Simulated assay, not measured.
Amino acid sequence: MPVRARNFHLHLVSDSTGETVTSVARACLVQFEGVFATEHVWSLIRTPAQIDKVADAIEVNRGPVLYTLVDHELRDRLREHCRRLGLPCVGILDQVMSTLGVHFHSKTAMWPGRQHALDDEYFGRIDAMHYTLAHDDGQSTHDLDDADVILVGPSRTSKTPTCVYLANRGIKAANVPLVPKVPPPEELDAVQRPLIVGLVTDPERLVQIRRNRLHLLQQETETDYTDLEHVQEEMQNARRLYARNRWPSIDVTRRSIEETAAAILQMLDRRREAAGSVRMETA
């Protein structure tokens, strides 16, 4: 029996950018079949007057409230508004912060948006993003050895979005496309430092993705680029290349960008742990 779709309002209140509360809310919502939420994101809420304006909007479009607010006065004010309206109001980090505080025998700094501070880590992410954008789709191959990760794969195997996601995590990621009948750049064979990962996917799915792409560009969709036999051959050649060079590979057919990036980050961690063990043994 099909699940009847239900629509409701969801208010996400944050004293920072709202990324955390939005991510948690969406991770939870996907577990509820047939439930669709109209998100109202209230970011950079840092004064009682702003909380009161949010409360007025919540009263107009009533729905659950999730928040990430470090100021106790603001949290109490928001909870009181929700109590009056009879709406659930949940601080998604409260239990975590309380548990960690007890374990660390410490109090929180009460600094809104502290995770977005302009520190070395932040500027490292900016540097990684600049590198990634400059080394997209086989550009600037002269300094590939400066990368942390190099993704290799046929066209439309999610190389670029995966690299951008990794760059946002502070990873310098370059990508090199595999073009039929064109050998990979010589610079790729010369790299020593980066982790090289090959991407593969199901040929039939890849054909559909490429056709959709060409259709959006208003280009001819029936070419070797979208011919199933040619695409199957592309994928076989890619797998042979990875095996010949002993590069690890990831099948992205049923993976999201986030899942592919997570697998790559795990590979990096294992690589660093192995390098650390070798250094300890030779010390």
Rank of each mutant, 00 (worst) to 15 (best):
P194D: 06
V231P: 01
E281S: 15
D127M: 14
T38M: 13
S14T: 06
K159S: 07
S277N: 12
H103L: 15
P64D: 05
V152M: 01
A283F: 11
E220L: 03
T157N: 05
Q192K: 12
V176P: 06
D119F: 06
V182W: 00
P184Y: 00
D71W: 10
G18E: 06
L206N: 01
R169Y: 06
L29H: 12
H116V: 12
Q95R: 13
T226G: 01
L214S: 00
L74P: 14
T160G: 06
V252L: 07
P177A: 03
L78D: 02
Q192R: 13
N7M: 11
T20D: 09
N212C: 02
Q219G: 08
Q139F: 04
I209P: 01
M267E: 13
V41F: 07
L199S: 11
N245A: 01
L151M: 01
L74E: 13
A109T: 12
R4S: 13
V164R: 04
L10G: 13
E187P: 02
A173P: 05
R77S: 11
K53W: 11
V197R: 12
D15T: 05
R79Q: 13
A190C: 04
H9Q: 11
E187K: 05
D148K: 11
H130E: 15
S106T: 12
A55R: 02
T68D: 09
E258C: 02
V65T: 04
R254Y: 15
H103E: 15
D137Y: 07
Q218Y: 10
E233G: 06
I51C: 04
A243N: 12
N245G: 00
A190H: 09
R193L: 10
L217V: 01
R26F: 04
T201D: 15
E121K: 14
E187C: 04
G276K: 14
Q95T: 14
E19K: 10
P48N: 02
Q208M: 08
L74S: 14
D71K: 13
T38V: 12
